[in-house]
Nucleic acid binder design. Structure first.
Length: 660
RNA sequence: GGGACCGUAGCUCAGCCGGAUAGAGCACCUGCCUUCUAAGCAGGGGGUCGCAGGUUCGAGUCCUGCCGGUCCUACCA
């Protein structure tokens, strides 16, 4: 049951419906009922600015209208009062005891079953080097969005596309062959050693700089790429070996943060199973692409710019503005393959991969990888989604537009509308952090506000290094507080804190904010951080643990608390505001989902943690002498704990440690 | 040249469909550990919301122009 606490949501709907009916009776249909959260908590729980909307059509002062409405409004179940405030706001005050009783009874409206499978594609790191901080933003954003969808009852399939036949893999192969003269068995030995991805990180940077100094060497890349695409021989074998090994490294890195996938579609299979050939036929047939006879794109198959770009009035987009889909040498561009892949995601291609199991995650979740030949194990049905989210950095929005335009040009308008580029801005490095990490900066770079991460230049913070650093720091903190605990336990707690710190750090920014990565900020466990939120949940757990240690047991809240008692306790503004905040977690999730902003959930969790921390400080629960109040406070703490845990673990993917 | 995004406190960022006195964290200053852990709590200073117009009862939010910054505009991905 995904919806644990939809009471607030239901209350809001109740008020909205009542108002809508009332307004429809008086003014006819068409008066929208907007519900806001009051600016200040002392104003009540819900605010309606309807009087402002009506002021225009009635040509009367908003305040007068509000007063009239308030006096004539029939009573609404669960609502204690509707007040006029400011220059025309209608503020709604809820019946606190009834509201709390509803929360206590666990009355939840069943989550609506939404048909159809959502496909979320994320991570998609070129398998030729270690993952870096920018890749982490993609993966954490994607994974959190997946958790948000699942928490709201949606069925989601997580795909991580592996570009194992691309230029970047070719470059590392060039490095092994031409720069290092490595044999197949030599590379195998490196793969068996730890941190093969780190080795390739350096090799890739070296190869790139070699091209820079020896432009003629680019021919090696062309030849290698061609051989890999063809798929046969020792070079191709080497490329597969490298890519597969790096993919394993990436999977390990991501799993450290609790990030898992359902299936890994691979570019090699897109080629060998002739996905592109099928898509190419359709694109030609429907006239979505055409062959260019002359000009700069002579000999290419291109998509006209009019498909994916607004053309200024009076101008005609020419062949030169078109996007090349098939190069003059007959090879297909990445976008072309992406169109085929996108069609497959919607089940529009009429082809499918074969699959084999790649690994089973420690929690039992299986991961499948696309293969060219059938394997004897029956695989689940992959692809064929009704909505597709591609978590891809915003610099690629032009390419994503082309992919969507491809679907549209094929007549798949619905699918085009449901192809969503879940874009986000890049992670860059602050110059200060570059200096700290010993990354050399050019004069030009050091003047900039931030420096772009570059795999090609080997410029960036490797994901595993950062995670290690966070664990190390957290371990020091845990050790100093819990020397008596076993080493293994302390390491577990430190790891959980590191995950919390990192995931929260990457989630607290809205998607279109460039993160100028600052090491000190990322390593912080204080203020608006994951550990702060984790701490609030841990404190709630501490209360219960302490109670148990003292021989106490948790009261039967439903038997001991009822609406009148709850109402009595909730006359305290502190308690009421905290309960209300905790009860809004579903609302926060809905809003975040509607906005496509995981950061909203992160922010909500932080705010709830703030409220709980203040409560924790002000009201020593176990020391409370009044029996009814003590029971109530315990319930409030338990409820907050549940809501914090739900937001952290189920939605944000941040574990809650036993202690910290 | 064309397109997209950004400019809010010293720094990093929130601010939902236009709405009530513009918020948070960091940094700085002052208090609070014999209590369920101070990774915390309470308080303080700090703002011409880039600039100029416009739309209206009302603009950080919408429109236009300008200034400053970033990204995209490959037969790379």
């Amino acid at each position: 049951m995904p919806e644990v606490s939809a009471v607030f949501h239901r209350m809001e709907k109740q008020v909205r419906d009542s108002f809508a009916r009332f307004l429809a009776d008086r003014f006819g249909a068409g008066v929208p009922v907007v519900i806001e959260q009051p600016k200040q908590s002392s104003f009540g729980e819900l605010a309606l600015p309807v009087a402002f909307t009506l002021a225009r059509q009635l040509k009367k002062a908003p305040k007068a209208i509000a007063e009239e409405l308030a006096s004539q409004l029939p009573s609404i179940p669960g609502v204690a009062a509707v007040e006029v405030a400011g220059n025309g706001y209608l503020n709604v005050r809820l019946k606190r005891g009834e509201y709390a009783a509803a929360l206590l009874s666990g009355a939840a409206s069943a989550a609506e079953e939404v048909a159809g499978k959502i496909i979320v594609e994320h991570t998609n790191i070129n398998p030729n080097k270690a993952a870096h901080i920018g890749h982490l933003r993609n993966a954490v954003l994607g994974d959190t969005f997946v958790r948000m969808l699942r928490a709201s009852g949606r069925k989601v399939e997580v795909q991580n596309y592996i570009d194992n036949t691309g230029v970047q893999v070719a470059d590392v192969v060039v490095g092994f062959r031409h720069l290092e003269n490595k044999t197949l068995s030599g590379v195998k030995a490196l793969i068996a050693a730890p941190r093969f991805d780190y080795y390739c990180w350096d090799l890739y940077a070296r190869t790139s700089s070699y091209y820079h100094d020896h432009p003629e060497a680019v021919q090696w890349r062309r030849d290698t790429l061609h051989t890999i695409e063809h798929g046969e021989g020792e070079i191709a074998e080497l490329a597969h070996l490298v890519a597969d090994a790096i993919v394993e490294c990436h999977l390990d890195t991501m799993w450290r943060l609790g990030i898992a996938y359902d299936v890994l579609p691979r570019e090699s299979e897109i080629l060998h199973l002739e996905f592109w050939k099928k898509a190419f036929e359709q694109l030609k047939e429907r006239g979505a692409i055409y062959f260019v006879e002359e000009g700069k794109n002579k000999g290419c198959w291109v998509m006209g710019a009019a498909h994916f770009r607004d053309t200024p009035a009076g101008e005609e987009a020419g062949d030169d503005d078109a996007k090349v889909i098939v190069r003059s040498n007959g090879t297909v561009t990445y976008v072309g393959k992406d169109i085929a892949y996108q069609m497959w995601k919607f089940g529009l291609l009429g082809l499918d991969f074969h699959y084999k199991p790649l690994r089973t995650y420690p929690d039992g979740h299986p991961l499948w990888v696309a293969t060219g030949e059938a394997c004897d194990q029956p695989a689940p049905a992959f692809g064929g989604g009704t909505e597709v989210y591609n978590v891809i950095d915003s610099r690629q929005s032009y390419l994503q537009d082309v992919v969507v335009a491809g679907l549209r040009a094929l007549g798949y308008n619905g699918q085009a509308d449901r192809s969503i580029h879940f874009s986000y801005e890049m992670v860059a490095l602050s110059p200060r952090t570059c200096v700290e990490l010993g990354i050399p900066l050019s004069e030009e770079d050091s003047r900039k506000a931030y420096v772009e991460v570059s795999g090609r230049k080997g410029l960036g913070v490797k994901a595993d290094d950062l995670i290690d650093k966070l664990i190390e720091k957290a371990k020091g903190e845990v050790d100093s507080r819990h020397a008596e605990k076993p080493e293994g336990e302390r390491l577990l707690v430190a790891t959980q804190l590191a995950i919390g710190a990192l995931r929260y750090f990457l989630l607290k920014f809205t998607r279109n904010t460039v993160i100028a990565f600052d090491l000190q900020e990322a390593l912080s466990f204080e203020g608006e951080t994951g550990p702060y939120v984790q701490y609030a949940a841990v404190r709630a757990r501490n209360i219960l643990r302490k109670m148990a240690e003292r021989g106490g047991t948790l009261p039967d809240f439903r038997a001991q608390l009822d609406a009148p008692k709850l109402d009595r306790q909730l006359q305290s503004e502190d308690f009421w505001q905290l309960l209300l905040a905790a009860s809004r977690s579903s609302k926060a999730l809905d809003a975040a989902l509607a906005a496509g902003e995981p950061s909203h959930v992160a922010r909500y969790a932080f705010q709830l943690a703030q409220a709980f921390n203040a409560f924790y400080h002000d009201y020593p629960i176990l020391a409370e002498q009044d029996a009814e109040k003590r029971t109530f406070l315990l319930w409030l703490a338990v409820y907050c704990k549940e809501q914090l845990e739900r937001s952290l673990e189920a939605v944000l993917g941040i574990p809650v440690p036993e202690y910290m």
